[in-house]
Design a protein around this nucleic acid. Structure first.
Lengths: 248, 248
DNA sequence: ACTATAGTGTGATAAAAATCACAGTGTATT
DNA sequence: AATACACTGTGATTTTTATCACACTATAGT
């Protein structure tokens, strides 16, 4: 009986899929693929495949060899590395329009991060072969890739600076700001649109669960945020930014 | 009198300059510019300019706008960001053959790091305009850039993981290994080829001078390294790797 | 509705790292 | 040779953070 329900759900998702043709796909138009001409878009449409992942499913795993890359069309994805003793470090979050796995694809190496769906997620997969050919035909696509790399590299270096020089309190505050920045807020204009475990918030900030919990409690006591289970509501973003010592 | 000596020294350096013509320049051949055809090399040779920096001189500074990028032909360069209250965080070191400032050039933004010569350093400067044109003419150059980006992005993410999850002791040990990796060892096969202040070693490891000093002293007491002033000699690289909990 | 099970909050304690203070050392300048 | 200045080493102390322990809460599966 349950299986049947799952199938229905799946069909429902497929019906809801927003990106049936690349031609009019707003996600493509807002992505690095804005550089493609109509003919190239047609080829992309033939070439790409469409994938659905449920909450908690692994999209790719550190150590696997990539054969292409993904563009997120719906949902939220957590990208993380696992350090000594398997401790997770969250590197970034991806959402609609973001590109995943292109670093490993370009360097023709194993994935250096894992990607996990943190909501139901839909992606288009495009093969390395297609990308390489497309860049050769259309240098603007190459430039777009380079700009994407440049942006991500800047973010990664900024992250190093923060990890090296900020206190844990600042990093926990910053983590909430990052989540608000990436995924935005509910209609109430204060509740984070993503739900994470304390573990995961700790992994963004580069600390342990207990310590993250303590600082979150502190921010609650200070009336800077309110927590309702795993939901986080930002009451005073200015004071939160101050706690983070942040540029947001 | 002293000024005269400096001038002589300078002439000496110019005579010693190894990269007079790009055509046979081994640094070019081992770099992303290996993709250029003879005609493109000729253009590069006309276009590029050659610069010399002394110890301690700034090559570019966080916040400036780039108009091109640099390739190091001789010397050692420290690339760092300055965090809250001006505390330095060393992001990486560059040497012969390494490319500097290309991230900011590509994203057409301000430099996000500063680059400082830590020995006498020579560089070739190439304008953004030339690079853009060259990539359009020759997609392989674009692919080389992308691979360079991919490599640097991977290193940056690895750095974040280390900063987030390793202890300071491990990071200090790792810093010495990184310096050995990047700049190599003297003929004695144990002394680091670069001389840094304690402050700077601390900035690589993401800690403060006193703490870095203490761990270096500890490694000395353990007969893992020997320090003679600022010179560092590695006695037992295996045990140093163990201290770093490292993959080197 | 009832168990498992996974996740959370918090006190107590230990460990790690930063800060402060200051003496000592080396190095460049006059 | 004397002075100034930048750099270094180290003890004492404080602050920050991790670890351990355990009770409590929510949630999914039966």
């Amino acid at each position: 009986m349950r299986i049947f329900v799952v199938i229905l759900l799946h069909m429902h998702n497929r019906k809801n899929y927003i990106c049936t043709e690349c031609n009019h796909c707003s996600i493509r138009q807002d992505s690095i693929f804005d550089a493609l001409n109509p003919e190239e878009v047609t080829q992309l449409e033939k070439e790409k495949s469409h994938l659905v992942f449920n909450y908690g499913e692994l999209i790719f795993k550190e150590g696997q060899f990539p054969s292409g890359m993904y563009i997120v069309t719906k949902g939220k994805v957590k990208v993380s590395k696992f350090g000594f003793e398997g401790r997770e470090q969250i590197m970034r979050f991806a959402k609609e329009g973001d590109i995943l796995g292109y670093r490993a694809m370009v360097s023709e190496e194993q994935y250096s991060c894992s990607a996990l769906a943190v909501t139901e997620t839909q992606l288009c997969f495009v093969s390395r072969k297609f990308i390489n050919q497309a860049i050769r035909n259309n240098p603007d696509l190459g430039f777009n890739f380079m700009k994407l790399f440049a942006r991500d590299l800047k973010i990664a270096e900024e992250k190093s600076l923060q990890l090296a020089q900020k206190t844990v309190r600042e990093r926990v505050a910053e983590s909430i700001l990052i989540l608000a920045e990436v995924y935005g807020l509910e209609k109430d204009n204060s509740t984070l649109k993503i739900i994470l475990k304390r573990d995961e918030i700790a992994s963004i900030a580069g600390t342990v669960r207990e310590t993250a919990t303590r600082f979150l409690s502190e921010f609650c006591d200070d009336n800077i945020i309110i927590m309702d289970g795993k939901k986080i509501k930002i009451l005073d973003i200015n004071r939160l930014s101050k706690k983070a010592n942040s540029s947001f």
